[in-house]
Amino acid sequence: MKVIVTLLLLISAFTGGAYGSTTYFEEDIDPCLLSNPVADGQDPWITKKDGYYYYIETRNGGLYISKSENLSDIKTDEKLVWELPESGWNKSNLWAPELHFIQGKWYIYYTAGKSGPPFIHQRSGVLVSETDDPMGGYIDKGQLYTGNNIQTKENNIWSIDLTVLEHNGQLYGIWSGWEDNRQTDKTPQHLYIAKMDNPWTISSNRVKISSPVEPWETGSELAINEGAQVLKNGDNLFIIYSASESWLPAYNLGQLRLIGEDPMNPDNWEKKGPVFEGTEDVHGVGHASFTTSPDGTEHWIAYHTKISPDPGWERVIHLQPFSWSRDGSPNFGDPVSGGISIPKPSGACKE
């Protein structure tokens, strides 16, 4: 049995801020099925630890974390864990947080700026948990250095969407950045990597590992690589990232595969794409994260989609399983349309 649920969503200010048409999707009463979208929001980051899924998002200048045993119930038991300060480099424009458990502690990586629009002051920051509980309080460890002068740490350069990679005992930061600081946010974005001494300290100059040069990356208005996420499959290491413009239907996912030993060598990253793109009724798929089913037998992708093909940033969260190709790379298939019922993650069905 199914019921029809009506969502009234605002079209973004990009299109004038007026109320748009009603969006419908099907919500399954069947306890073994789920239907997309599972929530409103964007830039979904979901991490799994000790049988629980933790979901982090920004809202009204604060960071909220929710905890659930069910992947499809990602916004239950939600708690505010940190808010932007009233002054400083990070007092505005809180974007795209990620929650990581590294070396026995919880860390949150986030993007913020001192003002905007235009969004020319965005930088990357990191918080560390005060307790063992990821939903407890956090201490701000400050801004990460994402520039070209690691010795002096002068002239920090615009950066967003920082994530971390642990590879062969070394910690790395990976982010989307500009080649130089500019006075306009209509600036191409590239992917960079740098070594880290610890989860809050970058210790090397950045190295560019991807630029938006392919047709599916350059878009119609602005060439973008952003939203990089690490995905591992045995000995295979991938960076799955978002390409093209996030406010348009062409937003999609690209892939970098490590084909050498050193991730700091740009020649060791092999590009492929798009590896996940929209359809006639699913628009602007991007900024994904990855997890597994409760019993660990399935791999799942969480990503956001636009509610309309029109320009704007009103988005919702989708979930679906994915498989692996013979060469070890992920096979995401096609995005599942809203209202289409799919089985819940393996181990989640409680009939």
Rank of each mutant, 00 (worst) to 15 (best):
S323G: 03
V207W: 01
E78Y: 01
T163V: 13
L80F: 04
S204H: 06
G136K: 13
V81Y: 13
G284A: 04
C349I: 08
I120K: 02
K114Y: 09
I193E: 00
D50A: 14
G116A: 04
N268T: 03
T187P: 01
T163C: 15
E26Y: 07
G62P: 02
W269F: 01
L71W: 09
N93D: 14
L162A: 08
D185W: 11
T15S: 15
V38K: 09
T187E: 12
I74T: 10
V81T: 09
G227P: 03
G312Q: 05
G339L: 08
G147D: 06
L71T: 11
D133K: 10
M1D: 08
G333K: 09
I160V: 11
D30C: 03
A302P: 10
T111R: 00
L231A: 01
T23D: 09
L99D: 12
W178S: 11
F290T: 00
S35Q: 03
Y192F: 12
S325N: 15
H121E: 15
S337M: 01
L144D: 07
S325C: 00
I74Q: 09
N181W: 03
Y52K: 04
E314G: 13
Q103A: 04
I301T: 04
K49M: 07
G51N: 12
W95L: 13
S176A: 15
I209V: 06
D185V: 02
G62W: 03
I157C: 05
S293K: 05
G339S: 07
L222H: 00
D235Y: 05
T152R: 13
L258G: 05
I259E: 11
V213A: 05
I160R: 00
Y53W: 05
Q255S: 11
S325G: 14
D28H: 09
P311R: 10
L258V: 10
I193T: 05
I139F: 03
V81W: 10
E217G: 06
Y55V: 10
H287S: 06
D161I: 02
S72R: 12
M1S: 14
I240A: 02
V207L: 00
I317P: 07
V5S: 11
Q170D: 04
G62V: 07
R315N: 08
Y251Q: 05
S129N: 08
P309E: 07
L9P: 00
D28M: 14
K186W: 13
Y24M: 11
A18P: 02
I139A: 13
W158H: 15
Y52M: 02
S203C: 06
Y107H: 10
G273Q: 06
D161H: 03
S346K: 10
I46T: 12
S35Y: 02
P294N: 09
N149F: 15
P118T: 12
N252K: 06
A96S: 14
G116R: 01
E130N: 15
P44Q: 06
D73S: 12
N225F: 01
S12R: 08
A96W: 10
G286D: 06
M264V: 03
T292C: 01
Y110I: 09
T22P: 15
T297N: 14
G51E: 05
L8P: 04
G234D: 09
T15R: 13
D140L: 04
T131A: 02
